[in-house]
Design a protein around this nucleic acid. Structure first.
Lengths: 231, 231
DNA sequence: GGAATTGATATTGTCAACAATATTTGTTAA
DNA sequence: TTAACAAATATTGTTGACAATATCAATTCC
């Protein structure tokens, strides 16, 4: 959290976006305490504004508000993690099903361009970009499928997935996104709903399988981790 | 909105629940303006508290916050209405599918008891209760299907459905809930997922078909409607 | 040395006041 | 009578101060 304050006062949306992406990009680890006054100083705004933003982030599922104690980056339990994947399957299978019926040339081009960019980043070893584009691919599908409600719900679920992988990802995990994304795009463009659903199902199962949701909980964060400056 | 203030200070959750149910029960019509200071007087709390509650209700999709102008009970467009039903089908079909696999004796009893209560209210002509129980039936399915995430999402969608029916329901609509709910329960108890999905799909299509989403927008609310006392 | 207690400090929760913006009311002109 | 304009009022947005609660540091006791 090394955001520099600028002279233009930050809007609530700016602040929300900044904290959101710091969590999703894993700069803020699960369990991190977010002090209102501290954030207010960082963003150079009144504390009441921060409270408002934190309320929103809590509704997004990215932070946990504990009465009288403050806000913490969320630490989803194993049960929650499974539920997130269940919800994602529910939504994303339906979205690709719909997209198979509605995809047009422009949509197909956008999908292909996106996966090509993913492939380029992946092949160049730029894994940070590859991972970011991988998440954005899911949101592109949601946008193209034209359900604002499901797209909004999915956005939260994808964000929470980032928290979950931060907590539970085993060491051997690797990003296999472009291959499965390509297969998905081809099924969509071919209007093959059954295949698209199967690929999406497999893809999400693959992501979930890389997480250690069977063993012990992820190591509890100690107090020093929580209290050390996050910069 | 004739809530009487009590001596115990209302909690934020109390206030939220009260406004929520007033909207869902159609005591507060779509388009109604909710003034912060007025609500603060009604509930005998500081206005800042009301602002917090209104933020939550906006995230629930039940009200619309217009900068510098205030909060209004939401008036979903036809596109939004269709999207809500699409999202509901996505979620509710998956929930009944899962419930067919996990239902036990206790769950079956709860479902049957609920539909019986619905049937009694319906047969006694107590349509207010019948409609309330009808909505609660959907939430019971969500609870039993054991996905907190989908249950939470569905709660918001069911609430918004109430707004939509308030705006778009044709005059000839009637509640045919108990019959379809009974068929659904039997499919679930028989572990027949295909049938359950089909009944749920048909049930939601039935609700949607009773709305006039093809013709002109619901009549615009005129100034007299907005300014008349809402009690 | 560890646990319990106390006091100091930090943080969150709440509030009323003021600034900014919108709405309503009153007045004037055509 | 209607439209335009100005003034008054209402409402929302923001802030800093204070109350309530939690955390941390220091001290004492076993």
């Amino acid at each position: 959290m090394d955001a520099k304050t600028t002279n233009r006062p930050a809007t609530d949306q700016d602040i929300h976006d900044r904290i959101w992406s710091s969590i999703v990009d894993r700069q803020l680890a699960p369990g991190t305490r977010l002090k209102e006054e501290h954030l207010a100083e960082i963003f150079n705004v009144n504390r009441a504004r921060i409270r408002q933003v934190l309320q929103h982030l809590a509704r997004d599922g990215l932070i946990t508000l504990v009465p009288n104690r403050g806000a913490f980056v969320a630490e989803p339990s194993i049960e929650e993690a499974r539920d997130v994947f269940f919800a994602r399957r529910t939504i994303e299978e339906r979205l690709v099903e719909r997209l198979c019926a509605t995809i047009d040339d422009q949509g197909a081009r956008r999908l292909r361009d996106h996966v090509a960019a993913e492939r380029r980043a992946h092949d160049a070893g730029d894994f940070e970009t590859a991972i970011r584009l991988s998440g954005a691919f899911h949101m592109l599908i949601a946008d193209l499928a034209q359900s604002q409600i499901l797209a909004g719900l999915l956005r939260d679920l994808v964000s929470r997935t980032s928290l979950i992988t931060a907590l539970y990802q085993s060491r051997s995990a690797h990003n296999c996104g472009p291959d499965e994304h390509e297969a998905l795009v081809e099924a969509i463009v071919a209007h093959d709903a059954a295949a698209a659903i199967e690929v999406m199902k497999h893809h999400l199962a693959h992501i979930e399988a890389q997480l250690d949701l069977e063993g012990e909980r992820a190591p509890a964060r100690n107090l020093a981790d929580i209290l050390s400056p996050r910069r």
